[in-house]
């Protein structure tokens, strides 16, 4: 009986999980700016989740270093389907200036399917909001597809 209500609410309020994969902290600070009162993504429904098991959208910052690669992939695996993976900044998408470094193990798209790329170094909060909106749209579509296939959401 409540399924419809839950599905509708879940589509309107995706929860984020943020992973720092070796970022310089520039992008992390911008993501914090998005979530705090100035840009306040919570008024649009985005909320920071405390654990990957509660999350719908995973935001990855940083170039994916060799040390953190396995941990990032393990954390992403813990996020239940349907999930949406967002790369924030140039680093996770391409390695940026770190791409020739010996500790670099990315890009992230080599290991998982990335849904949205947010460009910038660091990405501007407005750009992040736009990227998250796109991610929420993709998530809604994924949920519908999963439901049509008879999956339990």
């Amino acid at each position: 009986m409540f399924d419809n209500l839950i599905n509708k609410s879940a589509a309107k309020s995706p929860w984020l999980f943020h992973i720092n994969a070796g970022s310089c902290n520039g992008c992390d600070i911008e993501l914090v700016a998005v979530l705090t009162p100035r840009y306040d993504a919570e008024r649009l429904g985005f909320r920071l989740a405390g654990t990957p098991r509660h999350a719908d959208i995973v935001v990855v910052t940083g170039p994916l270093t060799a040390q953190i690669k396995d941990r990032v992939l393990r954390t992403i695996e813990q996020v239940p389907e349907p999930r949406c993976i967002v790369t924030m900044g140039s680093c996770p998408a391409s390695g940026n200036v770190f791409k020739d470094g010996y500790t670099y193990a990315g890009p992230l798209s080599k290991y998982v399917d990335v849904d949205v790329d947010i460009a910038g170094c660091a990405a501007k909060p407005e750009t992040v909001l736009e990227g998250l909106y796109q991610a929420a749209m993709i998530l809604e579509q994924k949920r519908k597809d999963m439901k049509n296939k008879g999956g339990q959401i």
Binding site: N96, I118, G131
Partner: peptide, 30 residues
């Protein structure tokens, strides 16, 4: 743009002003 640091060096060094970094921040893509 996923590999760029937006340092503007390319634009600063270009003697012909052929590269411009605009104020357009809508840079997201699937």
């Amino acid at each position: 743009l996923t590999s760029c640091t937006f340092c503007s060096y390319c634009s600063d060094f270009c003697s012909k002003s052929a590269i411009e970094l605009t104020g357009d921040f809508h840079m997201t893509g699937t």
